[in-house]
Amino acid sequence: MTALLTFQDVAKSFTLHLRGGVVLPVVGGVSLSVAPGECVVLGGPSGAGKSSLLKMAYGNYRCDAGAIWVRDGETVIDVARADPRVMLSLRSRVIAYVSQFLRVIPRVSALDVVEAAGREGGLSEDEARARARTLLARLNLPERLWSLPPATFSGGEQQRVNIARGLIADRPLLLLDEPTASLDASNRAVVAELVREKLAAGAGVLGIFHDSEMRDAVATRIVDVTRFAQARAA
């Protein structure tokens, strides 16, 4: 079976034009893949380029060399070269990205934020609303907060809204960048459970989890990015 996500000899560096064009290498020679049902966790110290890999897979960062193949139904698309419109389409149907930060949308209630994400991901209005309620309940977000805009929520509450938003639709590829950083143990367990359900349904995950408990609960494989960082100079 074709992998959901394949990095093929990917390299990335930043050129800082404002500092005389100094080039900061990030990663090099990255080759890895994520199959359906697999949760690949990126390991290594901070600054090793873990987040950059996720962002490249999401099209948020450019990719200097190599290819990043994402399976879209029967075809595969090279995200590194995809037209912005193709990328937007992939994001709405195929790739979910959950970071530790909720980009706050003013004046929209938590429930609506999650529901809207579901509808963008192709769910019907009723389905989106039902799933949004279920998810927020499972993530223990007090119901009195549902109708309020998340801007005023605590970090942990915002993060749960963000997770609900990322997981509500049935996108087959999940990119999780420390989604549980400010959650307590019981809520982390809920997230782990949600991730395992996605995996069981055939989704693939590429994730970063600093918390070892969380990592152990979901990881099927750990890839140390230090070797890509070493190869970056090459």
Partner: peptide, 21 residues
């Protein structure tokens, strides 16, 4: 030109980097 978040988060052109910074 490109995806808004990509251009703003990983600007390629020197001028865009200046603008973003």
């Amino acid at each position: 030109t490109g995806l808004t978040d990509r251009v703003l988060d990983d600007p390629e052109h020197a001028y865009t980097q200046l603008l973003v910074s």
